[in-house]
Design a protein around this nucleic acid. Structure first.
Length: 256
DNA sequence: ATGCCCCCGTCCCGGGGA
């Protein structure tokens, strides 16, 4: 089974790219982030027309996550538990083919210090609790999406330029490693231990043309899912299209 | 030190992204 994750920076602006991807990328599951629209306004019909199912957790203007699949989708959680006052749509989770899969849009956190950084760290603590609950189920679990975390210097074209950024601060990275230390494997790093594989290039300053990228979109796999890991790779092709998202998809292949 | 670019919305500017 091939699972893809892609921060599309507006599902409406990227609809043609995403439908093409469903048709051509041989993915069974597509996790989306930054829909920037409500569930009512999600272009469901475009996916129904090509035989894909959709579950979305959106909101107006900002955030929003979805799970798309050719297979049946059984929703297990909408919204990240742990704070009833949190109205930001950043987490959705479902069972597909006996694998538990979450689409995650972790807060950016800039500027830091500040309330947005505090929210990011608190959100990561809540994600830790959910990840702990899921790993104790002892089933294949896939936590994937835009984590807004640069794990290591190799994941950044210029670590010095990012050292004080919310995506690369030691506090942020420590919380990401805590998540891994529950027993989750960073699938891209497992397959490619030492090479740079970026997933985001800023629209500004010709970052794409200069390959000034960062790796912030990740697949974290529970031990039962890691046992199924066949391959994990970044698909750079969509980033080169006209009117591209600033992120490109990550693909993860799991054995049946 | 700041903007560069791109998306959204009771919309031609400002907030947010990373």
């Amino acid at each position: 089974m091939r699972v893809a994750s892609w921060n599309v920076n507006s599902i409406k602006a990227r609809l043609d790219h995403v439908v093409d991807y469903c048709n051509n990328a041989s993915a069974d599951v597509l996790l989306l982030q930054e829909l920037k629209t409500t569930d009512d306004n999600f272009p469901m019909q475009s996916f129904a027309d090509i035989g894909w199912n959709v579950v979305s957790h959106g909101q107006k203007t900002y955030n929003g996550v979805a799970i798309l699949s050719k297979h049946d989708i059984e929703v297990t959680q909408i919204g990240l538990p742990g704070d009833d006052t949190d109205e930001q749509a950043r987490y959705i989770e479902a069972n597909i083919n006996e694998i538990r899969i979450a689409s995650i849009y972790l807060p950016n956190g800039n500027p830091c210090p500040g309330p947005k950084y505090d929210y990011k760290l608190a959100w990561m603590d809540r994600l830790y609790k959910r990840a702990e609950y899921l790993i104790n189920l002892e089933i294949p679990v896939v936590l994937a999406g835009d984590f807004n975390v640069i794990p290591q210097p190799i994941d950044c074209y210029d670590a010095k330029a990012w050292q004080d950024d919310a995506l690369f601060r030691q506090e942020t990275r420590s919380k990401f490693f805590s998540l891994c230390n529950l027993g989750y494997t960073d699938a891209l790093r497992q397959i490619h231990p030492t090479s740079a594989h970026y997933t985001f290039w800023d629209y500004q300053r010709g970052a794409w043309q200069k390959d000034n990228g960062i790796r912030i979109d990740h697949f974290l796999l529970s031990p039962e899912a890691t046992n199924k890991l066949l391959n994990c790779q970044v698909d750079k092709n969509p980033r080169g299209l006209e009117r591209a998202s600033d992120h490109t998809p990550v693909l993860c292949d799991l054995s049946e």
